[in-house]
Amino acid sequence: MTRYALTSDPSVSVEVVSASLACCTLELQVALSSGALTRVPEGDVGPSVIVIAGTVTDALVPSVLELIHSYPDTKVMSFGACATSGGPYWDSPPVSKGIDQFVEVSTYVAGCPPRPDAFIQAIQELSVNGAL
């Protein structure tokens, strides 16, 4: 876990926990190291966002829930089409059709995968809405 601040607005900082489930994770890593975010010292408030990046299969739902429940007050971000609705695997029996079926989602980020700037924008919007 690392804390990041927006390079353009250092007062906004986030600590990201990512559930790395599929290819969207790679795009998330790109977003985290794109220069729009700067690493800052870790605070003691714990993580602010859990990013569900990738395809959630029914078999993985318990593990994803366990992760989310281990950080009770943390916002959940649905990153990419798979986490949001099943995406390209919408017709596949083992894939769950969106994490909002079993957990409250604060932000949806569209894309397959989402562009790095979409992640930055999502962080900005969460902070504007007072969610962070």
Binding site: S85, D100, S106, T107, Y108, V109, A110, A118, A122, E125
Partner: peptide, 12 residues
Amino acid sequence: HRALVTTNREDM
């Protein structure tokens, strides 16, 4: 266009 980020799935 801008990247699409929403708080509601319906808004997508």
